[in-house]
């Protein structure tokens, strides 16, 4: 803050009365109150979910929904974990997510490197093809994809899901990587070239290791998208063996309409991994969501 501005402000301060300052404080108080209420609205439904996951049906149907569980039914969790195939779905979700995240990041890093660091004619056009992918409604691809996977025998096969996740997450991943790659100084690979490195050596040994921080960001964003994905699994997978948690949870809830404790516990199990990731990596998630959406 420059001196001039500071003087202006102190002039203004001495010119106003104590009263005005009180009004300002009350104004700030009201703002905080509004922000606080919004925070409660954003969090309370999840707390409520956690509470009813610990209740018995008598409590859910006989008492106020705001009451605390009298005798927390922790047993709801192991019960749904082993009964409704939830353990199997959970495992499927984990490995589909990991496989698609790794594949997406490898392919996206390749493309971003070639587009930002290498010289070729069609690079702008190819980048455009990837970025336009962000605007495409995936539902418009669903029937032809279903037909295609049926013909190559990939219906009810995890590969159909993993490939779809990867293709549809490439655009946002490339977008997040792009800014980071563009900021890497040219001198770094020039030094590599002078030392006689091949392109592959420059990419794998010099550039890729530099991008570790942004890879972490894209990994967590991809993880959230894949973990929560619903339509592809619901359309391409028919047997319980290959279902993921989102689809499995949805079917499970459909079957156990009246057992709120079990429903709550299943939903909690499906969101806990994301909440844990958020507690550990909230800054990266915030950064990734902001970067992936606006830079286009």
């Amino acid at each position: 803050m420059s001196e001039l501005a500071a003087r202006k402000r102190s002039d203004a301060d001495s010119g106003t009365h104590v009263k005005a300052r009180w009004v300002g404080r009350i104004g700030f108080g009201i703002l905080y109150l509004i922000l606080g209420i919004l925070a409660v609205i954003q969090i309370y439904p999840l707390l409520w979910l956690f509470l009813f996951s610990l209740k018995t049906n008598q409590e859910v149907f006989g008492m106020s929904p705001f009451a605390l569980p009298q005798n927390p039914q922790w047993g709801n969790y192991p019960k749904v974990w082993s009964q409704g195939h939830i353990n199997l779905y959970f495992l499927n979700s984990v490995w589909y997510t990991v496989a698609a995240v790794v594949l997406t990041i490898v392919l996206a890093s390749f493309v971003t490197f070639a587009i930002t660091r290498m010289h070729w004619k069609l690079s702008k056009l190819v980048l455009g093809l990837f970025i336009i992918g962000l605007m495409i409604p995936l539902h418009s691809t669903l029937i032809p994809l279903f037909n295609f996977f049926k013909h190559v025998n990939l219906i009810d096969n995890p590969l159909s899901v993993i490939l779809s996740y990867t293709a549809f997450n490439l655009p946002v991943t490339i977008m997040i990587l792009l800014g980071f790659y563009q900021a890497i100084p040219r001198e770094i690979e020039e030094a590599g070239v002078i030392d006689g490195c091949s392109v592959h050596r420059i990419f794998f040994r010099i550039v890729l290791p530099l991008t570790t921080p942004v890879i972490a960001t894209t990994a967590i964003i991809n993880m959230i998208y894949n973990w929560n994905e619903f339509v592809f699994v619901n359309t391409f997978i028919s047997s319980d063996r290959w279902k993921t948690l989102t689809v499995g949870v949805n079917n499970f809830v459909g079957q156990y309409l009246t057992d709120w404790g079990a429903i709550g516990a299943t939903l909690m199990i499906s969101i806990i991994p994301i909440l844990v990731a958020f507690l550990l990596l909230s800054n990266r998630i915030v950064e990734g969501l902001a970067a992936g959406s606006v830079k286009g």
């Binding site: 954003q42 929560n228 619903f230 499906s270 909230s282 998630i285 915030v286």
Partner: peptide, 11 residues
Amino acid sequence: YLIPMLLSSVA
């Protein structure tokens, strides 16, 4: 404020 954004639409 961001927390709900991280959950699946199904949940």
